[in-house]
Simulated assay, not measured.
Amino acid sequence: MASTWIKGLGTLAVLGAAGFGAILFVTAPDRQDPTVWADLGEPDLAHGREVFFAGGCTSCHAQASATGDARLVLAGGAPLKSDFGTFHAPNISSHPEAGIGAWTLAEFGDAMTRGVGRSGEHLYPSFPYGSYARMTPKDINDLYGFMKTLPASDVVAPPHELEFPFNQRLVLGGWKLLYFTDAPRVELADASDMVKRGQYLVEGPGHCGECHTPRNALGGFETGRWLAGGPNPEGEGTIPNITPGSKSMGSWSEGDIVTYLESGFTPDYDSVGGSMVEVQKNMAELTSGDREAIAAYLKAVPSVE
């Protein structure tokens, strides 16, 4: 009898270990094929600057009070409060130790498009790689080339403040399995080239959905409510619905949206406020064509009331 129990427990242990191993294999960090980052040539720094502002890098990684050239010092540290704890934006300046100045293009690209850190660890989706995953290798190359020209900072950002189990990066593999995708957020039939460009900017580098789409209890986007707004993840106020079904913005024309992104003024002559202030500053740095493309896409997405 005892030997039967021992054999049974041994079998369960083997099956449990095999199952745990299978889970680890399925949810392991997944890098891009290295050939993705090969033969891209010298980065286009002027275009990299445009991608930099489209991606809103200064909003989280520069000092909150920074103005002018100080906005280009990406020392990190900005807190992002959430239901899972407080995340702190890292130093992504060109400093070789405190920042990412010593990273290769492949390491930078894997962080941006796969949420995989330099040491092969899962990155928390407070860093919006779920959106950046849609960026082209050329844009990544140009962006990193531009970022390496920016000032270095030796400031070491504080660590994240997370409780168990959220402080265990292994669980992020399961989160990615459930929610991480580089597929389009919405399917737009017969979209014009301008709308397609807007879709790329909004769903990719602009990562607008990261704030404007409501999330479920696990932090994944709610299905069918793309850009529909919801509670502010930092706990104060709400993030507006920016689909055509919005009560506040649904009546805006494409021209109204373009003016807002460029100047910060609404059709009612109100001005941008809250966290959108930094976003609007970034949008003002884009070309007029890109702002028009963003507006065209926002008027084309499914309406959510």
Rank of each mutant, 00 (worst) to 15 (best):
M1V: 05
A2L: 03
S3T: 02
S3C: 01
K7Y: 07
A13V: 00
A18M: 08
G19P: 03
F25A: 15
F25W: 15
P29I: 06
D30Y: 08
R31W: 01
D33T: 05
T35L: 11
L40Y: 03
L40C: 06
E42I: 10
P43H: 10
D44Y: 12
G55R: 03
T58F: 14
H61R: 06
A62K: 12
Q63P: 09
Q63W: 11
S65G: 10
D69T: 10
R71F: 02
L74D: 01
A75P: 02
G77W: 12
G77E: 11
P79I: 09
P79D: 10
L80I: 13
K81R: 15
G85W: 04
N91C: 04
N91T: 06
I92W: 01
S93N: 01
P96N: 04
E97K: 14
G101M: 05
G101E: 09
G101T: 05
G101Q: 05
A102S: 14
A102G: 14
L105D: 07
A106V: 07
F108C: 04
D110A: 06
M112S: 11
G117H: 04
S119H: 13
G120C: 07
F127L: 15
Y129H: 13
R134Y: 09
M135T: 08
D139V: 01
N141T: 02
D142E: 00
G145K: 06
M147P: 03
K148E: 08
T149D: 07
P151D: 02
S153H: 09
V155P: 01
V156Y: 01
A157Q: 03
A157M: 02
P159R: 10
H160Y: 12
E161N: 13
P165V: 07
F166E: 09
L170S: 15
G173F: 12
G173D: 11
Y179G: 08
P184C: 09
R185V: 09
E187A: 14
D190I: 07
D190C: 06
S192T: 15
M194W: 06
V195M: 05
R197F: 03
R197K: 12
R197V: 02
Y200W: 05
Y200A: 05
L201K: 02
V202N: 01
P205Q: 04
G206A: 06
G209I: 04
E210V: 10
H212M: 01
P214T: 00
P214D: 00
G224T: 00
R225S: 01
W226K: 00
G229R: 00
P233D: 01
P233N: 03
G235K: 08
E236F: 11
G237K: 06
G245C: 11
S246T: 07
L261V: 11
E262Q: 15
G264L: 06
T266M: 09
D268C: 00
M276K: 12
E278R: 15
K281E: 15
M283T: 13
M283Q: 15
L286I: 09
S288F: 14
D290L: 13
D290G: 12
E292S: 15
A295W: 08
A296V: 03
Y297C: 02
V301G: 05
S303E: 13
E305Q: 15
